[in-house]
């Protein structure tokens, strides 16, 4: 893994986030290389989800810079001064970044197939026939080819999350963000979703995964980042960190979740 030429796809530099006076992120630096699976763990309230949401601007960036594929997210830099991007330009940046939410957020008034087809047809302008063919392939890939005509309310949580992954993949993003994708699932449904994510990682997708699944981090992760109190406490090879955490806080957290 370490032999391949490492091209950074995501660069987070000095990221701070305030909600009013509440200082949630206190200077995050992080790099994710092309094709890498970067797993982020940490106690709730550590800011890991907020950090992830900053990457596709679901949260505004209070301070610092994020770039994806060499493109500055949310701003245009002119003579060293930052200018906010227009809503349209932000939407264009988001098309390159897929996101999977903890609570799936499928469109309940659309079937699984329509959920996956929505963005290719209405954002990319693909023909319906083309988008449908591709959507059925994607649903097959996540093991739900036979559920195309079902509404989200007719699917289990695990199935909904897999449709949500297919929906994000339909835009052919260069980066996938996972915000605690298995936290809202019954334990016996977690495995199916993790398997889909493992396949995706094997196919070379660059992924940032915020999760509590330490097993997934150990098995699939290329890097593991432990966050607490809005800062990165420790980062490195997942297997090393899990086996031999260097910081007391990491040790304490791993002790509680393992």
């Amino acid at each position: 893994m370490t032999i391949t030429a490492e091209k950074p796809l995501v660069k987070i530099e000095g990221l701070h986030k305030y909600y009013g006076h509440h200082h949630v992120l206190r200077g995050i630096d992080m790099t994710v290389n092309q094709g890498e699976v970067s797993v982020v763990i940490g106690p709730s309230g550590s800011g890991k989800s907020t950090m992830l949401r900053c990457v596709n601007l679901l949260e505004s960036i209070s301070s610092g810079r994020i770039s994806v594929g060499g493109q500055l997210i949310g701003y245009r830099e002119v003579n060293g001064k930052l200018h906010d991007l227009k809503t349209k330009e932000i939407a264009a940046q988001r098309r390159e970044i897929g996101m999977v939410f903890q609570r799936f957020n499928l469109f309940p008034h659309k079937t699984a197939l329509q959920n996956v087809m929505e963005a290719p047809v209405h954002v990319k302008g693909q023909s319906k026939a083309e988008a449908q063919k591709r959507a059925l392939e994607l649903l097959d890939r996540v093991g739900l080819g036979d559920r195309a005509g079902h509404y989200p309310s007719q699917l289990s949580g695990g199935q909904q999350q897999r449709v949500a992954i297919a929906r994000a993949l339909a835009m052919e993003p260069e980066l996938m963000l996972f915000d605690e994708p298995t936290s809202a699932l019954d334990p016996e449904l977690v495995g199916d979703v993790l398997n889909v994510m493992k396949d995706l990682a094997k196919s070379g997708m660059t992924m940032i995964v915020v999760t509590h699944e330490i097993g997934f981090a150990r098995e699939v992760g290329d890097t593991l980042t432990f966050m607490d109190g809005g800062v990165v406490v420790e980062s490195g090879d997942p297997r090393e960190i899990i086996a031999n955490p260097q910081h007391a806080r990491t040790k304490e957290f791993l002790g509680r979740v393992l």
Binding site: L58, R94, R95, I97, M99, F107, V123, M171
Partner: peptide, 10 residues
Amino acid sequence: EAAEALGMSK
């Protein structure tokens, strides 16, 4: 949020 994340316009 899900629609925004897909890059849909307002």
